[in-house]
């Protein structure tokens, strides 16, 4: 290849990459911009700047109820998922039983099934045992795909831990429970918090599973979806923009936590060798788990 040709190729690649970024961000920018557009119709040219859609949003009782409901669902399902995920991770990391390979594959099934299939299987089970769709069913649905994700994150943290720490603790005379409480738990705490933040955004945005499992009261995404299917108000753009902003903040927070950042603590050695894996792996690992 002559250098002229290779330079031409290079610039072609760079232009292609730029086009991909435009492709990725245009829809998001468009939504955000139109949430401030002073018109019912989503088209160009802009009719003017307004915050009326955000005001509408604030006064929309249904939207507020849906938001509150989503919060409740997210809070409970994340709490359950975090507990379960931690327990599952500890089991998979430490209990030696036969058929563990099969077990560890089976445990994550809910997170890798197509969302619709997970939702339907749970829906039919609930109907079979006579639980009608509502808060409980949504929470179980969310918990089922968030717990494996929490488990995955904690498991990878547990596998990085230096086993000699726990051995040292037991050597010092601490029992297994005390060792867990004083040594193991503090070293996975940050990961658990980050996994919760991640789980929260997942639960908050979930629609595929939620749609089948919700009763009369919709979560925010389900409510918005209903709005979108039967007519549309630009208020939706406003709520999207707000949710996007909040999710991004939570995710940045989770990423920062996972990448090993610590606030300065008294007595904490500042030059302690980093034991976390490199930041990027974790930040990207977060997104791995997100399936719509």
């Amino acid at each position: 290849m002559t250098s002229v040709a290779s330079r031409a190729w290079s610039s072609l690649f760079v232009i292609g990459a730029a086009v991909v970024y435009v492709f990725l961000y245009a829809p998001l920018v468009v939504t955000a911009v139109f949430s401030f557009n002073n018109s019912d119709i989503q088209t160009l040219p802009f009719s003017g700047f307004t915050t009326v859609w955000y005001e509408d949003l604030a006064n929309d009782v249904q939207m507020r109820e849906a938001l509150l409901y989503s919060f409740k669902v997210a809070a409970l399902s994340v709490a359950l998922a975090a507990t379960l995920g931690t327990v599952l991770a500890l089991i998979l990391d430490r209990v030696a039983i036969r058929g563990k390979g099969v077990l560890s594959a089976a445990v994550v099934v809910p997170a890798v099934l197509p969302g619709m299939v997970l939702a339907l299987s749970l829906l039919m089970m609930f109907r079979y045992i006579g639980v009608s769709p509502g808060f409980t069913t949504i929470v179980v649905g969310h918990m089922s795909f968030i717990a494996p994700i929490v488990m995955f994150l904690i498991l990878s943290r547990l596998r990085q831990l230096d086993p000699s720490l726990e051995q040292a603790s037991m050597d010092c005379g601490a029992g297994r429970l005390r060792t867990f409480w004083h040594v193991t738990l503090p070293s996975i705490r940050v990961t658990v918090i980050a996994a919760c933040l991640l789980g929260f955004t997942l639960s908050f945005d979930e629609i595929t599973v939620t749609f089948f499992l919700s009763g009369v009261q919709p979560t925010l995404p389900v409510h918005v979806w209903t709005l979108l299917r039967f007519g549309f108000t630009p208020e939706v753009n406003a709520v999207f923009t707000l949710i996007a902003a909040v999710s991004l903040v939570l995710i940045v927070l989770a990423a920062v936590l996972l990448s090993g950042w610590r606030p300065h603590r008294r007595n904490a050695p500042t030059s302690a060798p980093p034991i976390e894996q490199p930041a990027q792996t974790n930040v990207l690992a977060l997104t791995y788990e997100r399936t719509p």
Partner: peptide, 25 residues
């Protein structure tokens, strides 16, 4: 490249309606 994953799924889909609609962008 991965940040869009953190934006509401509905929003990512619906935005295309705004872009491609008959009266769209």
């Amino acid at each position: 490249v991965v940040v869009p994953l953190w934006v509401s799924y509905l929003m990512r889909v619906f935005a295309w309606k705004i872009i491609l609609g008959e009266k769209g962008v």
